[in-house]
Design a protein around this nucleic acid. Structure first.
Length: 271
DNA sequence: CTGAGATCCTGGGGGC
DNA sequence: TGCCCCCAGGATCTCA
């Protein structure tokens, strides 16, 4: 499941690989995956577009095009972006969209479960009005986070997963940050003490930053745009570690369900 | 504001 | 061994 660190890693790799290239042609083999503004043909609009830049917003990869239009990509659980050299002939399995550049290189969007989307935006289209704060930006201050939790009765972990509040945190990093801060995932957000909120704020930033440095977490089969696995799975403290001893207190890691999501935590040191 | 439940999909795991 | 059933999971939507 690509979350902020994985999406950041992919975006950086993609920037290296495709910025400056010009799209010669696009092939869409599953229509629902490729979304365009009303009356605009996804394929026609992309022909001749130059890739100006590649960035990230929350869990979205944002491709800036020469015309001022943008392409946003959300990978959901199993989506992948693959850069292929001209000499690679066999298509990647489950490829639904393929962009071919004028130099013969290709960018493929593949997705087993078909939940991901590639969306073409009009030049001035506002698309992330509801998006939350970027947790690694300067706007995400400790004070801002502390007050965000006031009056929220929802479990703290559910709060962290809501992209309207904080953009880019998913299941893995919500679990890890709560462990690092020593907070029980089902604690109502408003009941988290102020010192604990400050610890959590630091833990979110720390865990995301460390994962970016490790090029993300490869559980299931996540790989970046260059086909490389991440390394943060070796640093996970709770996620996916049911029954294993806690690194901090030795108690076995628990798994419960919160907001219909698997949740891993330690009864010994998360209060 | 909040939570519950449905929806979208398919590979793979569990059960028999 | 083989087959069927069922479920995970991010975002979004409806309903209570």
């Amino acid at each position: 499941m690509p979350e902020l660190p994985e999406v950041e890693t992919i975006a950086r790799g993609l920037a290296n690989a495709v910025v400056g290239k010009t799209i010669a042609d696009a092939v869409v083999s599953m229509a629902k995956i490729a979304v365009a503004p009303p009356g605009v043909s996804f394929i026609e609009a992309l022909r001749g577009e130059r890739i100006a830049a590649v960035g990230r917003r929350g869990k979205f990869i944002v491709v800036q095009l020469g015309s001022g239009r943008r392409l946003t990509v959300h990978l959901r659980m199993t989506g992948r972006l693959i850069v292929q050299a001209p000499e690679v002939s066999e298509p990647h399995p489950y490829t639904h969209i393929r962009l071919t550049f004028t130099d013969g290189w290709r960018l493929c969007f593949a997705d087993v479960r078909q939940f991901g989307r590639m969306r073409l935006l009009a030049a001035e289209e506002v698309w992330d009005a509801d998006g939350g704060v970027e947790p690694l930006s300067e706007d995400f201050t400790s004070e801002a986070f502390v007050s965000m939790l006031d009056g929220r009765r929802t479990p703290i972990k559910t709060f962290l997963l809501d992209q309207k509040h904080i953009s880019g945190v998913g299941n893995i990093y919500a679990c890890e940050a709560l462990w690092e801060a020593g907070i029980r995932p089902n604690r109502p957000a408003q009941k988290v003490t102020r010192p604990a909120r400050r610890r959590l704020h630091g833990a979110i930033r720390d865990v995301l930053q460390r994962s970016i440095e490790a090029r993300g977490t490869s559980v299931d089969d996540y790989v970046d745009a260059e086909g490389l696995k991440g390394g943060f799975q070796n640093q996970l403290s709770v996620y996916g570690r049911l029954g294993e001893p806690c690194n901090r207190c030795g108690q076995p890691i628990m798994r419960t369900v919160l907001g219909q999501r698997g949740t891993w935590w330690c009864r010994g040191c998360q209060k």
